[in-house]
Amino acid sequence: MANYITIAPAQFVWEQDIKKSRFILNIARITSEDDARAFIENITKQHYKATHNVFAYLLGDNDQIQRYSDNGEPSGTAGVPMLEVLQKNNLHDVVAVVTRYFGGIKLGAGGLIRAYAGTTAEGVKAAGLVARLTRTKVTLTIDYKQADMLQHWLTTHDYQIIATTYDTAVHLVVPVAEVEVPEFQAILTDFLAGHVVFQIGEKTFFEISTK
């Protein structure tokens, strides 16, 4: 599978009230259309008393599958704005359902577009995004006395620590772009005066925060 951006949690819920109508976003990762359909069906069952359960989803390395539904809202005012938000965030393999409980005040076409798009956009922002990238797994082994210094260096140089374990030494797992590995080793060897052991692992997918 290709590199791509998706939501940080496997599933996320966010809601807001707009002119007495309640809008609830449920968004989740998916790997197939069956996943998407099952998620939509589940949310619809949970909110069977809602006025509308609008959905949109993208699936495939190149978003080969794109589906949406206005679920009774005026054509083009709900599902399409949601889909466009997913596209603008460069998201892949996600399904979003916005549930609306009508509060008695009509929003008009423009208001509906803003409500569905805005609920999706704010929910995606609240969930947070991760990039699923191919990286080389590098394990750094150092003495305890150097752990804080190394962690600070990694953080300030935008390297994400995936895992930390402790025994007679400290072991940090860091994903590094393959082309950067030699330079990464050279810089840290110099920075730590040679008091570091590198274990270069296989290339695999890591989820790295986009913040």
Rank of each mutant, 00 (worst) to 15 (best):
residue 53 N to K: 04
residue 11 Q to I: 06
residue 169 A to N: 10
residue 102 F to H: 08
residue 149 M to I: 09
residue 31 T to I: 10
residue 62 N to Q: 15
residue 1 M to T: 12
residue 47 H to W: 10
residue 103 G to V: 07
residue 187 I to W: 01
residue 163 A to V: 05
residue 175 P to H: 02
residue 141 T to Y: 06
residue 209 S to E: 12
residue 176 V to A: 08
residue 171 H to Y: 15
residue 108 G to W: 07
residue 177 A to Q: 09
residue 118 G to Q: 11
residue 41 E to F: 06
residue 113 I to T: 15
residue 144 Y to K: 02
residue 167 D to H: 08
residue 49 K to A: 15
residue 76 G to V: 06
residue 74 P to N: 10
residue 10 A to F: 01
residue 201 G to T: 00
residue 165 T to L: 10
residue 80 V to H: 10
residue 121 A to I: 02
residue 192 L to V: 12
residue 109 A to Q: 12
residue 28 A to C: 06
residue 63 D to Q: 13
residue 139 T to C: 13
residue 140 L to M: 14
residue 139 T to Y: 04
residue 113 I to K: 13
residue 31 T to P: 01
residue 59 L to I: 07
residue 157 H to C: 04
residue 89 N to D: 12
residue 110 G to V: 10
residue 26 N to M: 05
residue 38 A to P: 00
residue 173 V to S: 12
residue 175 P to M: 07
residue 50 A to L: 05
residue 65 I to E: 15
residue 160 Q to S: 12
residue 108 G to N: 11
residue 197 V to L: 08
residue 10 A to G: 12
residue 78 A to E: 04
residue 169 A to C: 04
residue 109 A to S: 13
residue 2 A to V: 11
residue 33 E to C: 02
residue 166 Y to G: 08
residue 204 T to D: 09
residue 7 I to V: 09
residue 164 T to A: 13
residue 58 L to R: 11
residue 94 V to H: 02
residue 111 G to V: 08
residue 60 G to V: 09
residue 79 G to Y: 02
residue 160 Q to R: 09
residue 64 Q to Y: 05
residue 107 L to H: 04
residue 161 I to Y: 00
residue 120 T to E: 04
residue 147 A to C: 06
residue 20 K to T: 09
residue 39 F to K: 08
residue 210 T to K: 14
residue 26 N to F: 15
residue 122 E to R: 07
residue 82 M to F: 01
residue 33 E to P: 02
residue 196 V to M: 08
residue 147 A to D: 08
residue 187 I to Q: 13
residue 207 E to G: 00
residue 13 V to R: 06
residue 120 T to K: 07
residue 120 T to I: 13
residue 107 L to K: 06
residue 29 R to Y: 01
residue 147 A to I: 00
residue 154 L to I: 01
residue 93 D to M: 05
residue 193 A to E: 15
residue 120 T to A: 15
residue 34 D to E: 14
residue 32 S to N: 04
residue 200 I to T: 10
residue 179 V to P: 05
residue 122 E to Y: 01
residue 57 Y to S: 11
residue 83 L to W: 06
residue 32 S to D: 05
residue 13 V to N: 14
residue 193 A to R: 15
residue 63 D to V: 06
residue 17 D to S: 10
residue 69 S to D: 14
residue 104 G to K: 02
residue 145 K to H: 12
residue 156 T to R: 15
residue 134 T to A: 14
residue 146 Q to M: 05
residue 189 T to P: 01
residue 93 D to L: 03
residue 134 T to H: 11
residue 127 A to Y: 02
residue 49 K to C: 02
residue 1 M to F: 09
residue 147 A to G: 01
residue 107 L to W: 03
residue 101 Y to S: 13
residue 27 I to A: 03
residue 173 V to H: 03
residue 103 G to D: 06
residue 113 I to M: 11
residue 86 L to Y: 05
residue 30 I to A: 14
